[in-house]
Design a protein around this nucleic acid. Structure first.
Lengths: 103, 103
DNA sequence: TAGTTATTTGGCAAAATAGCCAAATAGATG
DNA sequence: CATCTATTTGGCTATTTTGCCAAATAACTA
């Protein structure tokens, strides 16, 4: 229960918001620019209510911000630090991975 | 089902390996240098078998590499891109978060 | 070899998460 | 106002994840 654990927990909440294939797909798409829920529904290929819940979770975590215009609600990333991180992660060797560091 | 979804899935697996308070705490500790399981068990404050399973999951995802020396097994991060990312995430405002972008 | 220490594995119950459907809400528009 | 469209919410089951205990390994030591 050290104080540092609380900080970790908060960070983990944010990271968890990205740690799902559909949610990461959404985040990746939003790196190109904002999209509305129906666009993202087509991208993910799930029920709109499912996508909406993913978006809600991501917004609660602070990863996304939303913006209502007309009938649509547009979502976009709240920060742009994702690209660099993903590029680095892509260099990791999964599984037993020997002992070679990467980036 | 686009090809990009597969890439996202792989990335999500890696991110998921960081998306748990105990596992992120471990990763943060390992940013300072390698540690053995018993050190990490004290840090996390959970059963050693629990910590071991977290470590195993992280190694499978490629986030950690391990190294056996004597009776101990030392773990360390497989990449050093975590710090920058965490610093950026710390600037995010959780919850309803208004509509202010951050970093 | 027997014992000791460090770690992993198997198994299981409890808790959290995902995803669908149906219903509710919030704005536009006729 | 009645309706349509876009999105969210509630509720439910199925699946996944967590974390403990007990038992199994693995490698050092007497």
């Amino acid at each position: 229960m050290p104080a540092s654990k609380t900080v970790s927990s908060k960070r983990a909440t944010v990271i968890k918001a990205l740690a799902h294939p559909s949610r990461l797909l959404i985040a990746e798409a939003l790196m190109e620019g904002e999209m509305c829920v129906c666009d993202l529904k087509d991208l993910v290929g799930a029920d709109m209510s499912t996508v909406s819940k993913h978006l809600s979770l991501m917004r609660q975590a602070g990863v996304l911000v939303s913006d209502k215009r007309g009938l649509n609600i547009y979502y976009r990333l709240a920060c742009d630090c994702l690209g660099d991180f993903l590029r680095c992660l892509d260099q990791l060797a999964p599984k037993k991975a020997a002992t070679k560091p990467c980036c």
